[in-house]
Design a protein around this nucleic acid. Structure first.
Length: 570
RNA sequence: GCGCCCUUAGCUCAAUUGGAUAGAGCGUCUGACUACGGAUCAGAAGGUUGCAGGUUCAACUCCUGCAGGGCGCACCA
């Protein structure tokens, strides 16, 4: 496809440049897809780079090079100099039809093997299991899932992972919150502390315990009751989160509980004094041992520290792994978790919430200290989502129990619209989500625009069939009849699909996909309004059926990658 | 006080990573099928890319300073 053309042009340009007497060693020839059609299908600023080096006029140099440039006419029909010294290339129509054939015949037309099977672990959502999923979780779920699809499409071997944070302070508070609500159900007067979870779902959990087990926990010592309720509550919560994600259309390959990291293991670990502070042999200690062996642990002020500042990762202070009271910090388990993930994958991607960006340098330091390359570890921040309700920003707080859950959002606007809405924006920009607007099932929501194009094409093809026209394969029709500007633009747009998808995958930029689909759908709607597909002219009809069916397949492919449905009727 | 993210059309956002005349959708205004789905299409208006400098053939993009918004800055997770 385009890649083949680029390779071809690259060597041709190098050759022409050297014949024209220009030294081009060390210059990477890059191509852009120009913004405007009149600038062709591919464009290079190669000559400007040569001109910079040799201090000559770029246009003159371009003319000399162009005069000696020999291109494959089956791929490129025209080359011209433009602007400050760009060389623009126009693809030949034959080449465009080549692509059409590929889309028509195969289902793998958009795939790439750029990843070469590299194992990527992408961890996202990983919400604390002490409450229902929120709107930022919904954003992360949509983006993480789509990114995983894009990476698979680009030839990577992808694992989608959810880290269950079932250890720590907030889980104890969660257990305590349930316990209090439980007592309340039996008429006991309680004082509900500020730092407990005030959401209705906590009462639901208490109610469920009551209906399953009655009052039997009332006589338990509070500590024991809290512990039992904690593990019951966490289990149900994780289960609910899984169900919510499922009905949102997001599935994970692996749910990894933090508890596993703390489970004792037989493993033999180095006998270093500083490791004595670790209570048991387990994955957490094993990770610490690796840091200790590199001399990156220290004991100070009664705590054990990871010397993250000794690793060049931008952290500004050292970090505690074991607190004065002997408890492990969240970080110490998280280091072990990242080690664990690197045992299973070559590259890690994490999608974290906006409140965690200050956490990146210390984690990066740990990853490097464990012996991994910094470029194999990337963290994407799913920026905050501002819900707008009744025209007003809606402030949410788990603690205060005032929040709109992912379930409520999805129920309101539907999974397709919700996901599409999130995927349309680049991940790291703040996002205003106007619920009232999103609730309207009107054309204000662009997902309908794209889905409508798909349904419309489906309908046209059905119409052709009922008119007695049986669509044929691309190889059996006269594609050269497709020469209207609207048709050629559609072909060119299809042409750009592999590029767009690869770029979206490698740059972690899923939002390029909705953008592409809206452009493609727009081109189709224009074409549709200007030209009839089913006409008296059978050969033209057959050619156009091939074209629009290819457009349909591309839209379907794009929507699949987004996790959005491609209906044949709406 | 320090760090990170953000600031582009009335609103919500893009801009292929330094390229050509900064683009879409919504909203506003004017129009379009007696034919394949009007959830559509054609056109118009709308901009000193927060401000001020700098780097170069070329800056929304990179550098410096300033202003505004958000989020962090724990021996919480």
């Amino acid at each position: 496809m385009l890649e083949k053309v680029r390779q071809n042009l690259k060597s041709a340009l190098k050759k022409a440049a050297s014949e024209a007497g220009f030294e081009s060693d060390g210059i990477e020839i890059g191509f852009d897809v120009p913004r405007h059609l009149k600038f062709g299908d591919l464009s290079t600023n190669f000559v400007m780079q040569i001109a910079k080096r040799t201090k000559i006029n770029p246009r003159e140099a371009a003319e000399k090079i162009l005069a000696r440039l020999i291109v494959d006419k089956t791929m490129v029909s025209k080359c011209e100099i433009a602007g400050a010294g760009f060389i623009n290339f126009f693809l030949s129509e034959g080449h465009l039809f080549d692509l059409l054939l590929k889309v028509d015949e195969s289902e793998s037309f958009a795939e790439s093997d750029a990843g070469r099977g590299t194992r990527i672990n992408i961890e996202f959502v990983s919400a604390n299991p002490v409450g229902p999923l929120n709107v930022v979780n919904a954003r992360a779920a949509a983006v993480g899932s789509c990114l995983a699809n894009l990476l698979k499409n680009a030839g990577f071997s992808v694992t989608k992972e959810f880290y269950i944070n079932d250890v720590g302070n907030q889980t104890n508070i969660f257990g305590k919150s349930i316990s209090l609500r439980y007592e309340e159900l039996f008429g006991k007067k309680i004082v509900f502390p500020e730092d407990c979870y005030a959401g209705e779902y906590v009462k639901d959990i208490a109610g469920r315990i009551k209906s399953e087990d009655g009052d039997k926990y009332l006589v338990f010592p509070e500590e024991k009751r809290i512990s039992i309720f904690k593990s019951k509550g966490l289990g149900w919560m994780v289960n609910d989160q899984g169900k919510s994600l499922s009905s949102y259309g997001v599935e994970f390959d692996l749910w990894y509980p933090e508890l596993l990291l703390h489970a004792p293991e037989e493993k033999k670990l180095p006998d270093l004094p500083i490791l004595k502070r670790y209570p048991v042999n387990n994955k957490v200690k094993a990770a610490a041992a690796m840091l200790a062996e590199k001399g990156l642990l220290k004991e100070e002020d009664g705590a054990v520290w990871f010397m993250s500042t000794a690793v060049n990762a931008g952290d500004d202070k050292d970090r505690v792994l074991i607190k004065k009271d002997g408890e492990l910090t969240y970080l110490s388990a998280d280091i072990a978790y990242h080690k664990e993930k690197f045992d299973r994958a070559d590259k890690l991607i994490n999608i974290w919430g906006p409140d965690h960006h200050g956490y990146i340098p210390r984690m990066r330091a740990a990853v490097i200290a464990l012996g991994h390359k910094t470029e194999d570890f990337s963290v994407l921040i799913a920026q905050q989502v501002n819900l707008i309700k009744d025209g007003q920003p809606f402030k949410m707080s788990k603690r205060k129990g005032s929040f709109i859950t992912m379930d409520e959002l999805v129920e309101d606007v539907g999974p397709d619209a919700a996901k599409y809405f999130f995927l349309r924006r680049s991940l790291e920009s703040h996002l205003d989500f106007d619920m009232d607007l999103a609730k309207k099932h009107t054309d204000e929501n662009p997902v309908f625009y794209v889905q409508y194009a798909h349904a419309r094409i489906f309908n046209v093809i059905e119409h052709a069939k009922t008119s007695g026209i049986e669509p044929k394969k691309a190889s059996e029709v006269k594609l050269s009849l497709l020469k209207e500007p609207e048709e050629l633009e559609l072909l060119k747009k299809i042409n750009n699909l592999p590029d767009t998808l690869l770029h979206a995958a490698l740059e972690s930029a899923p939002h390029l996909v909705p953008k592409y689909l809206e452009e493609l759908a727009g081109l189709f709607h224009s074409f549709y309004n200007k030209h009839r597909v089913v006409t008296e002219d059978l050969e033209l009809t057959l050619a156009r059926l091939v074209l629009i069916n290819a457009v349909r397949k591309v839209i379907k492919k794009g929507l699949d990658l987004l996790g959005v449905s491609a209906p044949s009727r709406m």
